[in-house]
């Protein structure tokens, strides 16, 4: 197996174009497991670990530009105030060692429906920036994953960054696992409230072939939340929201959990998320 190790982004794109069969690897927390279990035997690895351009974040045109190689640990320690939902999700990834290595770019590259970073990216309407020697394009996260471990990434493309909208509002993320740490999600749920434009974003993990939004649930909240009055949440609204989130999932029975449990738990997580987010919104507005 060849090991390709470009030193710059331009070189990485050139190598990618020259060796489209090479498997890109960032932190290696997914790829190395696949190799160890002999599930993949790529002819070459394309190591992105030396590409400095991937390892940083910054503001750009009102967006937060998060380099694909920023590890989860830095998202937790440096970005919890700017992207709270993503930081909550980052905190649930693996162990400290995994969080030191694993990246959002890798999570997207794996395109697993259980990727912990993907629901908050969906909920916040993030864009994925893909690059190749042919140029750069940005696709919504919602359109990035096309199936389990499949995405729109072209054979000559690399994931450069994700771009998160800068508008602010309460965000939540929670995930179910059958132990209290180091666990792949049985299911997960992310919520973003955007009081400024009275919109709501959601993301569901591990309960469909790809991470999915609960569009009907988003529309319900956007229409019926008492945005202006910041009044207490009506219980029927919370209940209905939970039902619509559960209905948006298409879970299966597998070794990690049953479909019935996943639907049930998503409904519970959704209800809890909206209560927590609304409490935060009310607190910021001086109510409650």
């Amino acid at each position: 197996m060849d090991f390709l190790q470009p030193e710059s982004w331009a070189e990485a794109l050139a190598v990618r174009a020259a060796y489209p069969e090479a498997l890109p690897v960032a932190g290696g927390t997914d790829v190395m497991v696949e190799l160890n279990f002999a599930r993949r035997r790529p002819p070459a690895l394309l190591d992105l670990g030396r590409v400095a351009e991937l390892a940083d974040w910054g503001g750009e045109d009102g967006l937060l530009r998060l380099g694909a190689g920023v590890p989860y640990r830095r998202i937790v320690t440096e970005l919890a105030g700017r992207v709270p939902g993503l930081a909550m999700a980052a905190r649930t990834v693996g162990s400290p060692q995994i969080r030191n290595r694993g990246t959002v770019g890798g999570n997207l590259g794996s395109a697993s429906p259980a990727g912990d970073a993907l629901p908050p990216l969906l909920a916040t309407g993030a864009l994925v920036e893909l690059a190749s020697v042919r140029g750069v394009r940005r696709v919504p996260v919602a359109g990035f994953c096309t199936g389990p471990k499949r995405s729109v990434l072209a054979p000559d493309e690399l994931i450069a960054a994700v771009l998160l909208p800068a508008e602010r509002g309460p965000e939540q993320f929670a995930k179910i696992g059958t132990r209290n740490a180091m666990v792949i999600a049985v299911c997960s749920f992310a919520l973003a409230l955007r009081p400024a434009d009275r919109t709501v974003g959601t993301g569901i993990g591990s309960a469909a072939p790809t991470p999915v939004r609960a569009v009907a649930a988003e529309e319900l909240l956007a229409a019926e939340l008492p945005w202006a009055s910041r009044a207490e949440l009506p219980d029927p609204l919370v209940r209905r929201f939970g039902e619509l989130v559960a209905a948006a999932a298409s879970p299966i029975d597998d070794v990690r959990g049953t479909a019935a449990y996943r639907r049930h738990a998503l409904g519970v997580l959704a209800g809890r998320a909206v209560r927590r987010a609304w409490t935060e919104h009310r607190r910021e507005g001086g109510a409650g």
Binding site: F173, A174, K175, I176, G177, N180, R272
Partner: peptide, 16 residues
Amino acid sequence: LWQLPGGMANTTAPEQ
């Protein structure tokens, strides 16, 4: 969080 069911996965509040 680490003292609660679900741990760092942020599922559970003390009153639950």
